[in-house]
Design a protein around this nucleic acid. Sequence first.
RNA 1: GGCCCUAUCGUCUAAUGGUUAGGACAGUUCCCUCUCACGGAACAAAUCGGGGUUCGAAUCCCCGUAGGGUCACCA
Length: 433
Amino acid sequence: MAKVITRFPPSPTGFLHIGGVRTALFNYLFAAHNNGVMYLRFEDTDKERSKKEFEEDILNAIRWIGIPYETQPIMRQSEKLDVYKKHLMSLMERGVAYEAEAAENDPSKKVIRFKNPNISITFHDAIRGEVTFDTTDLGDFVIARSIDEPLYHLAVVIDDHDTGVTHVIRGEEHISNTPRQILILETLGFTRPEYAHIPLILAPDKSKLSKRHGAVSANEYRTQGFIPEAMLNYLALLGWNPGGDQELFTLDELVKLFTLDRVHKGGAVFDIHKLLWFNHEHIKRLSDEDYASRLKEFSGKDIDPRLVPLLKMRAQTLAEAATALTDEFGFLGEISYDPSLLLQGGKLNAEVSANHLQAVAELLHNVPDEGFTAEQLKDIVWPYATDQGRGAVLWPLRVALSGREKSPDPFIVAALLGKAESLARIARAIKNL
RNA sequence: GGCCCUAUCGUCUAAUGGUUAGGACAGUUCCCUCUCACGGAACAAAUCGGGGUUCGAAUCCCCGUAGGGUCACCA
């Protein structure tokens, strides 16, 4: 069997969105599963709408997300206009394409139309089986604006042939484009690739996912603190499933398992909650070092390594972790708080609380520096707190140490602060009462 | 509207003729707990409708219905 070649051909007329990422992913997965390659090329025949910045955005997004691709031998359609021209001329010489009066806007300009044989086309779709269209209703469709300006249907067919594409895996919206591409390709004498039209990613209202439904650009997810592992995992499972109950996969595992026959036919609604869950699961699986460096890159802040396990457990996204750094975990720096917070807004008694703090301070005082760990501290303070009422003891203690309404438990905070600082903060709290 | 595609819990899905229709996310309740998280447990929740085929249908066929895609000198 010939080497499997797939392709991901975005047009640089907008940012790479989530649906495009999944199309690229399926193309890669299928190719890699079969020891093939996926080519990326830009379909920039629309000169007005194609922008260099979009090319960069797309490349950045695809690199960030980590889908491997190759850009050879064709990077841009605009770089091989002469090839399309040659085919266009031969098509016209053969009389299967012709120059026609332009109906729209500029009547002085002529377009090139394909002479439709008006036949019925049946093609095989790896996901849907046999699909039949009557091409009569297509009419003599336009394949080029002029001899030097080919249009999409002509260009794809030629590129796919020139790069030896064996499998065209693309969104369902292209299913009705397929017959006219087959018409062109067969008059050009090319062989048909295998087609696979994958289901659309839908918005909660079941319509095609678009900007008005919130974030759709892949890079937006990056800035929201999602990690590539989670994006890939989640997207792979939208419209495909290997069977069974396992949900967490690495890219390599997906490559091993991916087959077209398990791709669904119906569209799948994009659910941000589930993506969040995948993100957290993959974050929890990152090594502390890896996580710390990603969070540093994301937030621009240095991360205290002792905080890393806590952050991983607590935050579903890097953005959340970055916020927590100054929020729940801000106690590592200077703290200032309203003393009434020590009494839980007046629910506790000042004198009693001060006594508890004093008692705890004495307990902590006797702990040696090297034993000042969260576990140790809990062992020492817990019996006292349980005896005296945990809320009455632990709340003022935690606030005294963290200065915050919400934070990790007081033992963790104290251990992080160290003995001297913890004692100092407790003393200050007692004075404030 | 024409053409095409599709149809299992709210959502992603498993079950490829035989299961009390399974799992996950979200939801609710409970436990853990000084707070916030984390974690644990439980509950609730589906085969679009109607006809066939078959001993037996979520699964195969037909008809409805509903949803979606597409009908460019965009891709």
